[in-house]
Amino acid sequence: MKKLGLLLVILSGALLLYATVDFPLWGDPSSPASLHVSPRYIEKTMEETSVPNIVTAVLADYRGFDTMFETTVIFGAGVVCFLLLRVLGGEEGDHYYRHLPTGVTIHVKGAKGKSLSGEFERIDMLWTPYDLVIKTACRIMIPFIQIYALYVIAHGHHSPGGGFQGGVILGASVILLAISQNLRTALRRIGEKTVGILCAIGVFIYAGTGALCLALGRNFLDYAALASVLGTDPVTARSHGILIVETGVGIAVMATMIWIYNNVSSAGRYDEGL
């Protein structure tokens, strides 16, 4: 098996290496890929949409259908992770608690429905030290990470960034909370239902913007139709339409990242994370 696989890989690699003879040189400005569709985008983007970042404009406006279905694929991946892993039913079994003033750990067997409160803090089954430094540092950092993520989404027209990157950074801030504290703390901040609903809302914002354009008498995802609603000229309306769908993409991606992390890190039981 190993030898056969190696033979197959070397054979196809040799074929591909032979094919590189016909490729254009690296960084050649007159390669075929740079001569056809893209000059149109580079030269017309500024006057048609008033968005300096060409990648954002092409992503959300010219090729909006592509991005919409990519968002749908991400939503589908989140749902599939949930369906594959989630174990429904009450959480039972042994719980561990730490008595905060003394640091004594106690072990409660079969603690179904009961929970200790007050001076006790529930901890994970695996040994978890009391990390004051990590908890405090992450608590200080997380709001700044989230503000940076919102900046990335909102400033995607003028600088690298946009809905995908900002959404992933927002999701990563919640994942950081779940790693630095524990999964239950993150779930108290943003629960399972909220994540699922946000995921669907993100896709809905994107598709709903397209449907609104259709209702206003233009093509699906042709944001120039929003000019009458937003009270601007059609070129600025396209720029604003891009911002609206990028927000939808950001919400969907954020929620999906949190959803997949919650399911994978706790193997669907939602009690103890990483």
């Binding site: 992933v168 990563a172 994978v264 890190s265 706790s266 990483l274």
Partner: peptide, 12 residues
């Protein structure tokens, strides 16, 4: 994020 996913899956 994908490194975190890998570490989480290896942990589980």
């Amino acid at each position: 994020v994908s490194t975190v996913f890998f570490v989480a899956a290896v942990f589980r």
